[in-house]
């Protein structure tokens, strides 16, 4: 059972608020929003169900129309697909009319990976850190499939 890369999509959108920008993430699989206890069919024809999908969005930067870049004040956000609150990132004040592009990393970059003990979403107690070999888990997908065996499959990725 393997999940074909690319079938898990993220939609980024933003809404205007008086003071801040909100980045919303809508995780979808094969065109359908991802929900718990729901069966999906992969491109290979396997049935899959997701128990846990977590990943980091880091180094969010807003490129403005005058080519200035505004950096998110938080270096990394832990997104938990089944924790609705984590799907909305509130950033600092942005003039949305002047916004050209949003840049971000999926996962944690090499600098943060060698920076020692960090807090907030980067606290290793969040379960997104490899203990046996230093480094963050960038993306974690765990779930189950009835075929060919009733198996539990964890996919933990780093780059």
């Amino acid at each position: 059972m393997s999940i074909k890369p690319g079938i898990l999509l993220f939609i980024l959108s933003y809404f205007a608020y008086p003071a801040t920008a909100q980045l919303s993430i809508l995780p979808i699989f094969d065109g359908r929003p991802i929900a718990e206890n729901t069966w999906y069919v992969s491109t290979k024809g396997d049935s899959v169900q997701f128990d846990n999908i977590r990943f980091y969005l880091s180094n969010i930067q807003f490129e403005m129309d005058d080519n200035t870049w505004i950096k998110d004040t938080v270096s990394a956000h832990l997104i938990d697909v089944f924790e609705p609150a984590s799907l909305h990132i509130i950033t600092q004040k942005i003039d949305l009319k002047r916004l050209k592009t949003i840049h971000f990393n999926l996962g944690i970059d090499s600098l943060i990976n060698v920076s020692g003990a960090l807090g907030g979403d980067l606290d290793p107690q969040k379960g997104m850190y490899w203990a046996w070999q230093s480094g963050y888990i960038n993306l974690k997908i765990e779930g189950r499939s009835p075929l060919p065996l009733r198996i539990f499959y964890p996919h933990h990725l780093c780059f």
């Binding site: 003990a117 290793p124 107690q125 850190y129 203990a131 046996w132 070999q133 230093s134 480094g135």
Partner: peptide
């Protein structure tokens, strides 16, 4: 050289199944 920073060193024995076999979140 599996561990790249002194701060992160305690995590390895803590979670090793033949050493302390515990989860960080439970320790906290």
């Amino acid at each position: 050289g599996a561990v790249n920073h002194l701060d992160m060193q305690p995590l390895a024995p803590l979670s090793s199944s033949v050493e302390m076999d515990e989860k960080l979140a439970r320790v906290i």
